[in-house]
Nucleic acid binder design. Structure first.
Lengths: 212, 212
DNA sequence: GCGTAACCCTACGCACGAGTAGGTATGCTC
DNA sequence: GAGCATACCTACTCGTGCGTAGGGTTACGC
């Protein structure tokens, strides 16, 4: 008897994406540990063994989520980073791309990211990604410095870049918690504090985005 | 028969502190979920039911840790915050106190903090503490602004403060991961980026700690 | 049209760890 | 030195949720 099958048979590539979508959703809502594979499977409209067959264990699944979303983000930023622009312009474009991305995926990326910071198995994975970002920012600063014939110690450079990235992550968190906030405006504010610093702000100096 | 008892009987207050010490240690090494009450009990040199009797469930225990360490930190900072100093001086003293504290308690505070960010039950508790910090920083900025007859929107103020706090937290993480790094120097670097901003740094302007 | 590979399911085993029941010893008070 | 509260233990229960065994069905090549 061939009645209409309750669920369609779909090719692996499609199902994998559905599973990842569900996983991101559940992981970010519940947190890694509280999330259950059963719920993820159910949310993806599939049974649990399929998840194991395609994406492996819970840990591997989480890493897969992190990877997909992380890659998406990196690409979004890379598209905006033209290496031959002046430093402030590059910083601005990078920030705008970043906050745009976070704003679009609000409870996807930011929350996933937040999860990963604590859990040991993923802290490393995360650290790698952050390190790449820090490197990019540090490289940008170094480039701008050399252009002025100046130079500072590598550690100092790294720490400054780290602080910048940290502040940005923090505002991404803030953005995720404020659904009505405007990503572009947030990027501008970030630019103000990062580029100008508190002292300038106190003296009424503000940074304004260039009109393209 | 009264042979020497294997373990001494100690008053509650003492045992509670021992338990909290052990809990902080285990929680920060393993993470909230991976940590087991058995291990905490063993590390405290006591049996599990005692932990339940004194500090309650696992969640309550974690909150207690957060609370104790958080209070310690707040006090460390409060001791340095003289409200009648100029803004940069206050910021500097606050930062120095903060990084000094994190440096001293490295794998205590920073890691505990990192844990709490992800897990739902504690994110709230944490958010409250961060909110208090943000409020202080925002208040400081507002105060300095008004002194110059200037004023900006509350949201802008909040976001700037948030970014500052975020950058600071981030460097605290960095400090926790670099055992050889100097807290005082880290505070100086933080001051440079927060107070002066990237633009100034690129132009060779640097901030130096006042000699007391 | 028939084999075979890919897709998909309903169950279950099993370990791990939170929290507890019920009991023993020790010091403190009067 | 009897009574009582407090400190402390061993040894369980029991839920939860990861991961899997084993089997069914649809499409696709040949």
């Amino acid at each position: 008897m061939s009645s209409v099958p309750a669920f369609k048979r779909l090719p692996r590539a499609v199902r994998e994406q559905q599973m990842l979508d569900a996983a991101v959703k559940v992981f970010s809502r519940r947190g890694f540990h509280a999330a259950s594979m059963d719920e993820i499977a159910e949310d993806a409209g599939i049974s649990k063994p399929m998840v194991y067959a395609y994406l492996g264990t819970k840990e591997e699944l989480f890493v897969a989520c992190l990877h997909r979303e992380g890659t998406r983000m990196m690409q979004a930023i890379a598209g905006a980073a033209a290496p031959d622009l002046p430093a402030d312009e590059r910083l601005w474009r990078g920030l705008r791309a970043f906050f745009g991305f976070v704003g679009a995926y609000r409870d996807g990326w930011a929350v996933l990211y937040r999860q990963a910071r604590g859990e040991q198995p993923f802290a490393g994975e995360l650290a790698t990604m952050r390190a790449r970002l820090v490197e990019v920012v540090a490289g940008m600063l170094d480039h701008a410095l050399r252009a002025e014939g100046r130079e500072i110690a590598a550690v100092d450079l790294e720490v400054v870049a780290y602080a910048l990235v940290g502040a940005t992550e923090s505002l991404a968190d803030w953005l995720a918690d404020h659904p009505d906030a405007d990503p572009e405006k947030t990027a501008t504010r970030m630019m103000n504090v990062a580029w100008l610093g508190a002292a300038q702000l106190l003296h009424g100096v503000t940074w304004r985005p260039p009109v393209d």
